[in-house]
Design a protein around this nucleic acid. Sequence first.
RNA 1: GCAGGGUUAGUGAAGCGGUCAAACACAACAGACUGUAAAUCUGUCGGCUUAUGCCUUCGUAGGUUCGAAUCCUACACCCUGCA
Length: 258
Amino acid sequence: MASSPKVVVIVGETASGKSALALEMARKFDGEIICADSRTIYKTMDVGTAKPSKIAQKQIKHHLLDICSPDEKFSVAKFKALALKAIEDISSGNKLAILVGGTGLYVDAVLFDYQFSPAGARKNLQNIRHLKYQELKAYTKGSIPNTLVIGLQLPKDELEQRIINRTRLMFENGLSKEVKRIVDKYGWQSPALNTIGYKEFQNYFAGSKSLDETRELINRNTFLYAKRQRTWFKRNKSIQWLDDPSRAVDLVTTFLNT
RNA sequence: GCAGGGUUAGUGAAGCGGUCAAACACAACAGACUGUAAAUCUGUCGGCUUAUGCCUUCGUAGGUUCGAAUCCUACACCCUGCA
């Protein structure tokens, strides 16, 4: 399959430094970034989702950010289609596509070429394991060709410290105002507000939780989320785990030369 | 000082003579995941070890009972009503 474009994929837990690494790789290898993130797709949700800054976006083109409004429903299938389109666009412009994200399902939808049945065909609300067979087939088949998958892994306590710091920064950068604005405009039932860093404010605004308690809760929920991400990525054996991000340059260099 | 309430596993909190290694929640640990995925769901959670098994736990020390986290006594610490 010489025709399929090369894609560098960067995965890892939240706050592991994926975005920074992606930016660096994009600069070094003339790339553009595709965000595989189920929350940064939403407009106006910037602080709480740790969305790449405007400055970063000016330097390097980021795809699939701000593509829908907080009251809209989004889906993996939509993501897959858009991501494939973006990969095509980027590589036809002779640039390197860099897919970055912590949303394992979104990444895998592209990487393992998920085939979705028609919308609404299946109600799988209880996470019934009836798709196990299909899923296994997909994973043994392996990922799509011409991909390099880099995973960022930090020691647990270091990651927790980074999460704590990041949450504190979010609060300093007006997270509470951002949440308020979105709630006032779209209401708590909006799909986008069922997000760590946002939903925890419900009790704060209702007056039953202090700001400190809210921040603690966000931290704890983020730890839990990171754990789920770890579990998800663990099963993908083709990920090349790095504890030292600087090694990524070599990996990408050899990948591009083969 | 007198009267009353409390002390339970990592935390919070049930239990108030047997079916209690002790509900439940949270955390912790592990896992699942194909159109909500920063979502949703599952398992383990005193120790030994994996057994319809044993051992050690419910502030501390004794006691009553066939049998106590549960009743009694003393002590320690904490909160409250009267001084």
